[in-house]
Amino acid sequence: MNNSLHLDRESPIHRLSPEVKIVAVLLFTVIVVVTPREEFAAFAGYAVLIAIVAALARVPAGWLLKRATIELPFVLLAVVLPFAGHGERVEWLGMSLSVEGLYGAWNIVAKGTLGVLASLLLAATTTTRDLIIGLDRLRCPDVITQIMTFMVRYLDVLADDARRMRIARLARGYDPRFLWQVKAFAVGIGALFLRSYERGERVYLAMLSRGYAGRMPVTVGAPAPAAEWVLSAALPVASAGIAVTALLA
């Protein structure tokens, strides 16, 4: 999938099995979210952990920061909070800011950013295919993983179809502007749906004729060895350690 965030590198993190990475990122995110927002030191510790993983995975900081801009709408929400929040207020540079709102803004920015960075590291070090295999090994219901497999496999095909149709429209003097394009756009989507649905039927018939009976055959390798689980547990264990230390201190 050419639009996925996967960053093809050779690193110990890339070599880990997908399921251990998914579990590590999930546990890390949960720990970050449940950490009380007043524990500033803990969040600094989490950021250090993320930096260590990024370095191990050989993911450049610039790459991460550029893609972390996906979070911008929530940063904007956070900027509004100190003004809109209730309760006690403080004066800062002549502006009256709500203390509760400031804490809320910090909470969203800190937890949101750490979560996005952790997800980006997972996406950067794991191919789409591996991710689905990982979900499958984590006992994700096979209906979901199979829908996902088909979706990911055909995403490029359909996106290319959509792009070709758009170029064809442009080549015929179509000038996309404001609302007048809605009709052409929507008719294009209709055509895209017909193409996808009919492709779906062809794919299904082709699969049936090759012996498909409702479940994809398992073709790939063994689940993660215990050593990988232990290695990847380092991230959640370290972050849990930071959280507990911060709470006790």
């Binding site: 996902m148 995403l155 895209l192």
Partner: peptide, 19 residues
């Protein structure tokens, strides 16, 4: 699985078309 997968890909592809 095949039909829903194609429809999901369709929704995803449609979401990528910004206007």
């Amino acid at each position: 699985a095949p039909m829903a997968g194609l429809v999901a890909a369709f929704i995803f592809a449609v979401q990528m078309l910004n206007f």
